[in-house]
Design a protein around this nucleic acid. Structure first.
Lengths: 214, 214
DNA sequence: CCTAAAATGGAATGTCCACTCTAAAAAAGG
DNA sequence: CCTTTTTTAGAGTGGACATTCCATTTTAGG
């Protein structure tokens, strides 16, 4: 398995990184992440990434064996970004207010970027699932973590009696995640947040309809 | 506006098509549609499409000015396919049974293709929204038609008193469509239909929770 | 300091890919 | 039939793109 145990701490060939090297590598990954989100994985050229990141060919290939390795690093990076963002929002969820705040956060983020770009993980998934097995597996794991965050939030609500104890939390979390993905894709296409708002509101209202304490 | 008024009836330069020409054009569009769905728009090479469709370069460029024109034809074709499929399923919707049958149809189709490929329109959208304005507009229209089909179904239910008269049908239709898209993307990534089933079931159950007659 | 390793520089290579061009075969239609 | 249009043939082109290679500069650590 070509897994990097410690992220971003080695270059090609397992060579260690100096602070400077780590910074360069980081800059490449961040630039690649942005470009791949903006124009897709295929259209984000190595040349483009080089130019925007301000590095040259050797630097890029010093830190990544090939474009595929860079793609996998981008997946890790975007997963980290999304998970961090949603963790702070979801770990405070103790009731429907928290869930609504989470919904608002997602909508606000999309609006802030003018409905451009969609989901950092979802768009990678769309680009890569059918043509890159390693990527598909990594993205599956990303979705899993994200789903886990949601499950934890719902679980807290369940413990507090806000959701029925016989509710299948895992399934509900998966449905919420799907709602986010679909809402983002539609909103990205339509360039307005209505679709995202509608699907998330309905998903949350559905849970509300199950709530015993209401 | 570069709209083709009558689909598939002219070659480049507005030339009319003989039956033979129409067949060739059709074969190209169908092959391109399949390949673009399977490997994405970028990776579906003109060469690949030629080889699989059994045509040569001249034939392809006789019917399509460039790859972009082919892409737009593929969008039209896939839209037609999806709309036709969902119309037969949705125009019978008069109650929740019909909605559930529609859900089952979507799940069955995905299962039949082993969760490979995702949504013919959704994956085009993901590939093209950020880099191809004409495509984005066309796909926006595709989603709109699809949404209209759903709205009609919900409207029938509303007329029959199965859904409350004050329900925002448009918003509900949009949410359902988003659920389909998100469910398909997740299921495609996970290679199982659970995500699609979960999000659609919840979306339908939400509508059920609003139903006066129940 | 001095040496080994890491980081940077950038030209060069070969493949892939969308698209063009010239020409011939087939079909329409008067 | 004979002319015009449509369809098929397929070699060729120029650019884009991922990757390689050789060389120099910078940093780490004893």
């Amino acid at each position: 398995m070509p897994t990097t145990s410690l992220e971003g701490l080695v270059a090609v060939g397992g060579r260690p990184l100096t602070p400077k090297g780590r910074a360069t590598r980081q800059r490449i990954v961040e630039t690649a992440s942005r470009l791949m989100l903006e124009v897709g994985v295929e259209r984000a050229t190595i040349d483009d990434i080089q130019r925007v990141a301000g590095v040259n060919t050797s630097q890029l290939y010093h830190y990544f064996a090939d474009k595929n390795a860079l793609i996998l690093a981008v997946i890790d990076h975007q997963t980290q970004t999304v998970i961090d963002l949603h963790r702070v929002s979801l770990e405070r969820v103790e009731g429907f207010d928290g869930l609504v705040a989470w919904r608002d956060m997602i909508v606000d983020v999309l609006r802030a970027q003018q409905c451009i770009g969609g989901c950092p993980i979802g768009s990678l998934a769309s680009d890569l699932v059918e043509t890159n097995l390693d990527a598909r597996r990594a993205l599956q794991a990303s979705f899993s973590s994200w789903e886990g965050l949601l499950r934890d939030g719902l679980s807290t609500m369940q413990d507090r009696g806000i959701l029925p104890s016989d509710l299948d939390i895992g399934r509900a979390a998966l449905a919420l995640l799907a709602a986010v993905q679909g809402g983002l894709l539609l909103s990205q296409t339509r360039r307005d947040t209505v679709a995202l708002e509608a699907v998330l509101d309905n998903a949350i209202d559905y849970l509300r309809s199950l709530s015993p304490s209401r």
